[in-house]
């Protein structure tokens, strides 16, 4: 298993290099200038100076190599310096956002917590709702509960978040007045009342995203349970006189979770990607919102860096999913 992981990690290096090049070139093809947000009253020679200061006038491969160095060496070392008080890369140019001229990673660092608390919680809530629904729906296939679960999943699948989110705002914020419509990024949790406030303002976006997540995962769980319920080993467990609870929650569930855990792991990178629509709808100032803002402003370094981080996460969680599969299924041996 260890050598397998190592081999996969080594293999990931060339894959990611190719991905980074493709991302860099594709994003660079996009029309527009980093100065498009600057007022037209700024004289052309000043404008030219500003572009030079950003390094935006350099040929694309020079910028690519610089970006590679910045991403893989300067940025990690900046973090290192920050943690251990050293000054290895002090004064070296970090990846700068063309839009705000501050380091891209500083911005990401500010945005990540919002995204993780809201989108991450929604993912977790989705899983916690989906698993019991999927398990019980399969155990009582075609029962009233199962039909209800199917309806729930269909709604979660087919209703887009901008609709369900707006609906939730109308019901819970406008009509009932229980929850705030907007997410306040500045809120700091210091005591019980501010904690409750945080929970309240998270409720609507979490519900919106959680519904969509739960729909998908509950279907996976249900069909995996149904597949396994047909298996001969289930009959064996019953023939041994095991209680129904043991048969379903130990024998069947343990086997059914294998593909579901994989699906869940593969879905985790999408948390970091944020939920563009939902974040915008509720004013959650997260990664999704940052990406949209950067695209609008032609902020190529920001877009390139975010897209690449996303690619790294996908490759990483693919590996994690494979490793989990191997850990959960004793028949699979990696070596």
């Amino acid at each position: 298993m260890f050598t397998y992981t190592l081999r996969r990690l080594l293999l990931a290096v060339p894959i990611l290099l190719v991905i980074s090049l493709v991302i860099f070139l594709l994003v660079d093809l996009a029309p527009g200038s980093p100065m498009s947000e600057i007022p037209l009253t700024v004289p052309p020679d000043v404008r030219q100076k500003m572009i030079e200061a950003l390094g935006a006038d350099q040929p694309v491969f020079v910028r690519y190599l610089l970006w590679l160095k910045q991403f893989f060496w300067i940025e990690p070392m900046t973090l290192f310096d920050h943690w251990f008080g050293t000054s290895i890369v002090e004064g070296q140019q970090r990846i700068l956002s063309w839009q705000s001229r501050s380091p891209v990673f500083t911005i990401i660092g500010q945005r990540i917590p919002q995204t993780l608390t809201v989108v991450g919680t929604a993912y977790l809530v989705g899983i916690l709702i989906a698993l019991p629904i999927g398990i019980y729906s399969a155990y009582r296939q075609y029962s009233f509960f199962d039909q209800l679960g199917t309806l729930f999943a269909m709604i979660g699948f087919s209703v887009p978040t901008f609709f369900s989110g707006t609906l939730f705002i109308i019901i819970f914020a406008v009509w009932l007045g229980w929850l705030p419509t907007k997410y306040d990024t500045m809120l700091e949790v210091t005591d019980w009342s501010s904690f409750m406030q945080q929970v309240k303002q998270m409720a609507l976006p979490v519900m919106t995203l959680g519904l969509a997540n739960a729909a998908t995962i509950s279907r996976y769980m249900r069909s995996s349970m149904l597949d396994n319920m047909q298996m001969d080993y289930v009959r064996t467990a019953r023939a041994k006189g095991m209680r129904e609870k043991t048969v379903v929650l130990r024998h069947v569930l343990r086997n059914s979770l294998i593909p579901v855990v994989t699906v869940i792991a593969l879905g985790i990178p999408s948390i970091f990607g944020g939920a563009i629509i939902t974040e915008n709808l509720f004013g959650v100032n997260g990664i999704g919102a940052a990406l949209i803002g950067a695209i609008h402003a032609n902020d190529l370094p920001m877009v390139q860096t975010l897209a690449f981080i996303f690619a790294v996460l996908i490759v990483l969680f693919n590996l994690i999913a494979d490793i989990l599969y191997g850990l959960l299924d004793p028949r699979i041996r990696y070596d």
Partner: peptide, 14 residues
């Protein structure tokens, strides 16, 4: 009870 097919009658993950 002993069943016909020993290849599938045991739970693969235990």
């Amino acid at each position: 009870f002993v069943f016909q097919d020993p290849m599938t009658s045991l739970n693969p993950v235990f």
